[in-house]
Every structure is written in structure tokens, then in C-alpha cells.
Design a protein around this nucleic acid. Structure first.
Length: 250
DNA sequence: CGACTTTGACCGGCGC
DNA sequence: GCGCCGGTCAAAGTCG
């Protein structure tokens, strides 16, 4: 064995060690954020309990409890790409398109067509600030358990420029832009991350800082502060989504 | 022929 | 009450 081989082996071992640490760190983050999420959700439910009027004459807009069923994701696309297609592992049927006042780009309305009667809807619109971002807003909860269906590769069909059935590779980014009324984790957690849209960058920015959990008295505070800063990091949220998706798969 | 998009019309909430 | 606006409907068109 040459010294060169030993050197490579050492590098690989170091890399493995580093990845294990990252994995542990991510696990801690998932637990912290998960528990915070549950607490917040419970708190919201309690504090908003039912000022909920059910008027049978009102349309579906107010039929659903508003606190658990809305989330946003952002998707990076080419500026020239005019299709309003967000690949999230579900199958969608477009039922409308509108130009809204606050944004020159049209907003597309989709309904989940993977299961009959699935109440989930999504709106997709190009961000007014950043034309390379597609903002997808999800409403409702899927009434079917899995996104792992034979059709999962299928895209919502073309809008003006995407040929029918064409696969579009997008960089999905979960954005920490949820409003107080959207505390629940994003609905489409799969987000096709199993397709390995996981960042290639071996050192995600959120892990470049040193993280030590030595002192238990300040651990909780540290973790909370760090978690708060992490949720603002799109790379972290993407990694988090992947971790959760894998956990669910297991 | 079925599944889907397109697009103008329509509906209902909301602010003035 | 009126008009604006976002969301939905539904007929027609498209595609495989």
C-alpha cells in the first residue's frame, strides 16, 4: 500500500466521521423543530378555538379550518421558463389561471388528482420580486397516504411551453415564509427529494459553524437559537425535508 | 376516448 | 349598494 492510498483512506474516514456528526446534528434539529412545531400548533388551536362559523351558504373558501392546512414552497426555475409547474411528487389538475393585481405573472390553480375527492389545492405563481422563483401555496391535507405511486414521475401537464409529460428538474426549496396561519409543516414533504435534489455542497452553510452541546445548562438555549436561525436557511429546510421524508420511509 | 389545459364567465367576499 | 378582486366553473380545445 502506498502512502497515497493511506492518505486517501484517512480522508475518507474523516469525511465519514464528519458526515456522522452532521447526521447527529440534523437529528437533534429535527427533534427540536418538531417539538416546537407541536407546541405552537397546540397553542394556536387552543387560542383560536372555534370562532368558526359554519355558514352553509359560504363557499369552500371558509369550509376548512385555517390553521393547519396551508404552506408555501418556492422553486427555483429559469426565468425564461414560463410554465407554472412545481414538481412535488403529487399529481395535479389545473382548473384555473388568473392574473392577480399584485403580480404581473399569472397564478395557476391546481387540485390534487391523485385520489378522488382529495381536497388539496395549490396555487402557483412566479414571485414578483424574484422572477426565477415559483411560489407554490398548498391548502388542505391529502386524503391519500402516499406519494409513491406509479405515476409519481408524472408532471402536471404542460402549461404553455412544457411538453406533456416532460420531466422538469427543479431545485425545490422549502421556504421559511409560512404565515402564522400556516404553522403546519408543508404538506408535500416528499418534494421529490428522494430523487436526490439534495445539495451537492459537502459543507452546507448551516453546518459550517461550530456546534457544541457540551454544557447542558445552555444547550437548550443554544439549540433553540440555532434552530431559529436554521429555519431561515433554505438549504437547511431542504435537508430537513429530506431527513423527514427518509424517516417516514423507514 | 380519457385526461388534461385553456380561458372567459361567473360567484362571493370585502372595502369604500 | 357598488365595484374590485381572487377563486372557481365549465365548455371547448389539445394531446397521446
Amino acid at each position: 500500500m502506498s502512502s497515497n492510498t493511506f492518505g486517501q483512506e484517512k480522508i475518507l474516514r474523516d469525511e465519514l466521521k464528519r458526515l456522522r456528526k452532521e447526521n447527529e446534528t440534523l437529528k437533534v434539529m429535527v427533534e427540536v423543530i418538531g417539538s416546537k412545531c407541536s407546541i405552537l400548533e397546540t397553542h394556536l388551536r387552543e387560542s383560536h378555538c372555534p370562532p368558526y362559523h359554519h355558514d352553509s351558504n359560504k363557499r369552500a373558501r371558509i369550509e376548512e379550518f385555517p390553521f393547519t392546512k396551508s404552506s408555501k414552497i418556492c422553486v427555483k426555475v429559469d426565468e425564461e421558463d414560463k410554465s407554472l409547474v412545481v414538481r412535488d411528487g403529487y399529481q395535479w389538475r389545473k382548473y384555473g389561471q388568473k392574473v392577480t393585481k399584485d403580480n404581473p405573472s399569472p397564478r395557476a390553480y391546481y387540485r390534487c388528482s391523485m385520489a378522488p375527492g382529495c381536497p388539496v389545492k395549490k396555487k402557483v405563481q412566479r414571485s414578483a420580486e424574484d422572477r426565477t422563483l415559483l411560489v407554490a401555496t398548498y391548502e388542505g391535507l391529502h386524503n391519500h397516504g402516499t406519494v409513491d405511486v406509479p405515476n409519481r414521475d408524472r408532471l402536471p401537464l404542460r402549461s404553455d411551453q412544457s411538453p406533456r409529460g416532460q420531466l422538469v428538474n427543479r431545485n425545490l426549496t422549502l421556504m421559511p415564509t409560512m404565515s402564522p396561519s400556516s404553522i403546519q409543516p408543508p404538506i408535500a414533504l416528499d418534494l421529490s427529494l428522494s430523487r436526490s435534489s439534495f445539495p451537492q455542497d459537502p459543507k452546507p452553510s448551516y453546518l459550517s459553524k461550530n456546534l457544541s452541546f457540551g454544557n447542558r445548562s445552555s444547550d437548550c438555549t443554544k439549540i433553540e437559537e440555532y434552530a431559529a436561525s436554521l429555519v431561515r436557511d433554505p438549504k437547511f429546510t431542504e435537508a430537513l425535508a429530506l431527513t423527514v421524508a427518509r424517516t417516514l420511509n423507514n
